[in-house]
Simulated assay, not measured.
Amino acid sequence: MKNQWIEFLTGRVTVKVSGRGIERFLNVLTRNGLMIWNVKRHGTETITFTMRLADALKIRHYARERECSISFLKRAGMPFLFKRLLKNSGFVAGALLFFLLIMFLSNVIWGIEIKGAKPATEYQIRKELDKMGVKVGKIQFFVDNVEGIQRELTNKIGSLTWVGVELKGTTYQLQVVEKKEPEKPEQLEPRNLVAKKKAIIASMFVEMGQKVVDINDHVEAGQLLVSGVIGQEGQTQQVAAVGEVWGETWYKSHVELPLITNFFVFNGQEKQKHSLIIGNLEIPIWGSGDPEFKEYEAEKNIKKINFLKWELPISFSNETLRAREETTRTYSTKEAEKIALELAKNKIKTGLDEEAIIKDEKILHKELKNGKVILDIHFKIIENIAVGQPIPKETPE
């Protein structure tokens, strides 16, 4: 079986042979190792066949010995294609330059669309985008990816609740959701204020309603604090009780902190690797090979290459390898206790209102076990314990 690819690369020709004794001529070619195929007879003294270009250069000698005339009808394969390309090198260079120019222009930012933002916010967004290099005329390879742009805008512009960034062709499209202005106070239905948990009343501020407890009173969860029924007997009315009742509440926290902790830190060394991705094939361009450091974290950023509005199966990859070192952090027992106490405070604060304050803390149990400091801590918290509870409607007798 003939290898079609080899024939294309080396070149092949179709030969016409005329004269007497063409059968003997074919036998001579075969005996001398010249491969021929597609042999066809045209009359009694003419045949055509196909052979390799390298063998075609040898057959004139055998043709003269057999009184045959030869001519070449058709040439095909890479050598002839390359020769034609050289003749038309100007056209090929122009076409290649045009293709590269179109590809270059397809990867330039030509538009930035922002939807859902007020004019002032849009101006601020465009100003931040300009600082990040996201502007018309900039090559997409040299700007951050859409996730990075989205994260940067959200961190820098406080008036944004959410921003979605999407790259469509050569245009960045941003969908913005701004923070809503404070809503007007809603009209409350008649209600009481009751305790949401067990506490000792520390202070009170009643804007509307009748208080039914005093400072230092001990209250249970669900107990009435401020009544929404005001007025004298026989002339009462129901209102929405409004106010704050600050009470002393109690929490317990359990914390364990190792005295010795191993973790990784970056040491500042890094290696950049650039490659071209075609389908599933990744071709290194620069920075190939393993880094000098053994421990590292890799961050890979892939940029798609566009041609007009189409996304080509070709990407440019930039991978950053950051060296890291394992380090050991050791605490003394006192240091571990102090840090564990701070961790416990932070843990408690996550479940409290922003206005709540820690009044006091007391270590109930302290233990050093298995290389860990173990603390059980009791906290006294001052927080607003009042929550609204609708006043039941009276049913007519």
Rank of each mutant, 00 (worst) to 15 (best):
Gln140Met: 15
Gln235Leu: 00
Glu207Arg: 15
Glu325Pro: 13
Glu178Trp: 08
Phe25Ser: 14
Met132Glu: 12
Arg126Tyr: 02
Glu181Phe: 00
Lys118Ile: 03
Leu26Pro: 01
Glu292Ala: 14
Leu375Arg: 04
His61Ser: 11
Arg64Cys: 04
Asn192Leu: 09
Gln269Met: 12
Val176Tyr: 07
Asn384Val: 07
Ala323Trp: 02
Met204Pro: 08
Glu122Ile: 05
Trp286Lys: 15
Gly388Pro: 12
Asn267Thr: 14
His365Ile: 02
Gly351Leu: 11
Pro79Cys: 11
Gly268Met: 04
Phe142Cys: 04
Leu34Trp: 11
Glu270Asp: 11
Lys273Phe: 11
Asp130His: 13
Lys304Glu: 09
Arg322His: 09
Ser332Tyr: 00
Gly90Asn: 03
Asn280Val: 03
Gly94Ile: 09
Leu85Ala: 15
Glu128Ser: 07
Phe104Cys: 09
Leu96Ile: 12
Gly111Cys: 01
Thr327Lys: 15
Thr121Ile: 14
Tyr296Val: 09
Gln175Ser: 15
Leu86Asn: 12
Val373Asn: 00
Gly133Met: 04
Lys156Arg: 15
Glu220Gly: 07
Lys168Leu: 04
His61Val: 08
Asn38Trp: 10
Gly19Lys: 06
Asp214Arg: 09
Val194Ala: 05
Lys345Tyr: 09
Leu81Val: 14
Glu189Lys: 12
Glu183Pro: 05
Ile125Cys: 05
Tyr62Leu: 01
Leu321Thr: 10
Thr333Gln: 14
Asn370Ser: 11
Ala195Met: 02
Ser288Cys: 00
His254Asp: 02
Glu23Asp: 14
Leu81Phe: 15
Leu343Thr: 02
Val143Asn: 09
Glu244Pro: 00
Val255Ala: 03
Val13Thr: 03
Pro284Val: 12
Val194His: 03
Leu26Ala: 00
Trp37Gln: 03
Val265Glu: 13
Lys271Gln: 08
Arg66Leu: 13
Arg151Leu: 05
Val176Asp: 06
Ile112Thr: 12
Val143Lys: 07
Val219Trp: 09
Glu299Cys: 00
Gly158Met: 09
Lys294Ile: 10
Arg151Lys: 07
Glu183Met: 13
Gly388Phe: 11
Lys345Phe: 10
Asn3Gly: 01
Arg66Trp: 08
Leu129Tyr: 11
Glu244Val: 07
Trp110Ile: 10
Asn262Tyr: 12
Leu368Cys: 06
Arg52Tyr: 09
Ile139Met: 12
Cys68His: 05
Tyr251Thr: 04
Asp55Trp: 00
Lys366Cys: 00
Ile278Lys: 04
Ile109Pro: 02
Lys300Asp: 03
Arg75Cys: 12
Leu259Lys: 05
His365Gln: 14
Glu282Met: 12
Ile200Asp: 13
Ser89Thr: 08
Lys2Glu: 04
Gly209Asn: 02
Gln175Gly: 07
Leu81Ser: 10
Glu342Asn: 11
Lys180Leu: 11
Glu295Met: 08
Lys74Tyr: 14
Lys131Val: 12
Glu7Asn: 13
Glu186His: 06
Thr14Met: 14
Gly19Cys: 04
Gly247His: 02
Ala95Glu: 03
Leu29Met: 14
Thr154Trp: 10
Asn346Pro: 02
Lys179Tyr: 04
Lys273Tyr: 13
Lys87Arg: 13
Ser71Leu: 05
Asn267Asp: 15
